[in-house]
Amino acid sequence: MDAREVEGPLKGYHHEAYAFPLPPENPLSARWARGKLRAPRPGVLWFDRRCFDSEDRLLIALQGRIARIPETVEVVPDVFLQGFVEGRSLGAGPLSGRTLSSRHESQLAQLFQEVVAIKTDELDRLVRTCAPGGHPAADGDSAAFLNRLIDFTAEDVHDRHARRYGALFKALGVRRSALDALRVPAGRLTCRPFTLVHGDLHRSNFIAAEDGDLWTIDWELAMIGDPLYELATHLHLMRYTQRDADRIGELWAQAVEAARPGAARAWRQDLPHLLAYKRTQSVFTDVIRAAEALGPRDGPNWRLLPRAAWRVRRALAAAAGPLKPESVPTLAQVVSAYTNWLRAPAP
């Protein structure tokens, strides 16, 4: 193969991916012009709980059950090849909050419905999952599910990185107690039957294929849990207008209730609690990611600082309710916080 035919590394946080033409003898070549190989990026930080050990094995288990997901084959033991979806991600372009087309909204509703219809006990037989701590205590215990998400963010995100980023958290008014405060409403969440959850339905994980169909990629954060978490994550990441968010909420509720009665139970009442968690989680995540993106403290890329600070400031503003700061830092104050942190001696 000519190296010039290989495209990559493709944009992604957890993995590096490369696309290349498929030879005629490859089993995917009859349906895909190109394949995609992915490899974990070394040293990358994980900010979300994971439930499945292998995204590729999950995709194989979901073939024929969920439409428009990458077809995957195991070419040699533990090496997988995905069909490459030719098209354009919905995250391409400057209009991050734009409305979905009616065709894409309909296919999004189909995705919501197909995901919750998956029998989770069947997945347990088909896909090797992580340690028991990765699963909620009991099926349908939505409060326990949210509490475990809070535990993960508090312990595996904040506490694990507090020594390195503690001064930055403090300068930005990001306190661990904001996570603990989310546990009060969590105890009043309504029980819903647990389902498969993609967990990362943002615009860059939707590909508008050349024929106009909407494909869903990157299932590495999939889990078993409260189906309402899917809606909360989707609304948080998509940055819809309020009008569009209301319509998508209704679309989700109708779709999942038809496939799994009870999956949308009390969704309007409980959605604000899950959204508060997502907005708070994003602050902890974005503060660290922004610092990592700037490079080493003894030689940061200062040109990246304005854009990184803007993203952090946006996350702080979105989470102002659950974080309860005295005031949301201005963009200049965020830039100053990172500048001081970069110039201070490393702990």
Results as ranks from 00 to 15, higher is better:
residue 111 L to D: 00
residue 102 S to D: 08
residue 29 S to C: 13
residue 74 E to P: 11
residue 139 D to M: 11
residue 114 E to L: 01
residue 146 L to I: 13
residue 70 P to E: 12
residue 75 V to N: 02
residue 50 R to C: 03
residue 86 E to V: 14
residue 77 P to L: 01
residue 87 G to P: 04
residue 44 V to S: 12
residue 126 L to Q: 09
residue 63 Q to T: 06
residue 64 G to A: 04
residue 97 G to D: 08
residue 119 K to D: 14
residue 29 S to H: 15
residue 114 E to A: 03
residue 80 F to G: 00
residue 126 L to C: 04
residue 94 P to H: 07
residue 73 V to C: 09
residue 39 A to N: 09
residue 67 A to P: 06
residue 50 R to I: 10
residue 28 L to W: 05
residue 107 Q to R: 10
residue 66 I to C: 08
residue 143 A to H: 05
residue 80 F to S: 00
residue 68 R to V: 00
residue 78 D to N: 12
residue 119 K to R: 13
residue 66 I to D: 04
residue 97 G to I: 08
residue 59 L to K: 01
residue 77 P to K: 10
residue 108 L to F: 03
residue 140 G to T: 07
residue 52 F to R: 02
residue 83 G to C: 11
residue 41 R to H: 05
residue 52 F to S: 02
residue 143 A to T: 09
residue 134 G to F: 10
residue 21 P to T: 13
residue 89 S to F: 07
residue 78 D to T: 06
residue 40 P to Q: 13
residue 86 E to N: 08
residue 116 V to C: 01
residue 96 S to H: 07
residue 128 R to C: 06
residue 100 L to W: 06
residue 52 F to G: 01
residue 73 V to S: 07
residue 57 R to Q: 13
residue 89 S to E: 06
residue 29 S to T: 05
residue 54 S to Q: 01
residue 23 P to S: 14
residue 67 A to T: 10
residue 26 N to W: 12
residue 48 D to Y: 07
residue 52 F to I: 03
residue 106 S to M: 10
residue 35 G to R: 01
residue 129 T to M: 14
residue 89 S to D: 13
residue 138 A to T: 12
residue 42 P to L: 14
residue 127 V to S: 03
residue 90 L to K: 02
residue 71 E to M: 07
residue 116 V to H: 01
residue 43 G to I: 14
residue 145 F to I: 06
residue 56 D to T: 00
residue 47 F to Q: 02
residue 69 I to A: 08
residue 57 R to G: 04
residue 109 A to G: 08
residue 52 F to C: 04
residue 133 G to H: 09
residue 21 P to V: 12
residue 32 W to P: 00
residue 138 A to N: 08
residue 113 Q to A: 15
residue 123 L to N: 07
residue 33 A to G: 15
residue 63 Q to Y: 00
residue 57 R to F: 02
residue 76 V to N: 04
residue 115 V to T: 13
residue 26 N to L: 13
residue 126 L to F: 02
residue 73 V to F: 11
residue 64 G to H: 05
residue 115 V to E: 03
residue 72 T to E: 04
residue 36 K to R: 15
residue 94 P to V: 12
residue 43 G to P: 02
residue 76 V to I: 11
residue 71 E to R: 09
residue 141 D to I: 05
residue 131 A to R: 11
residue 105 E to G: 06
residue 101 S to E: 10
residue 98 R to I: 01
residue 114 E to I: 05
residue 46 W to F: 13
residue 90 L to N: 00
residue 135 H to L: 15
residue 57 R to Y: 00
residue 116 V to Y: 00
residue 109 A to C: 10
residue 61 A to R: 09
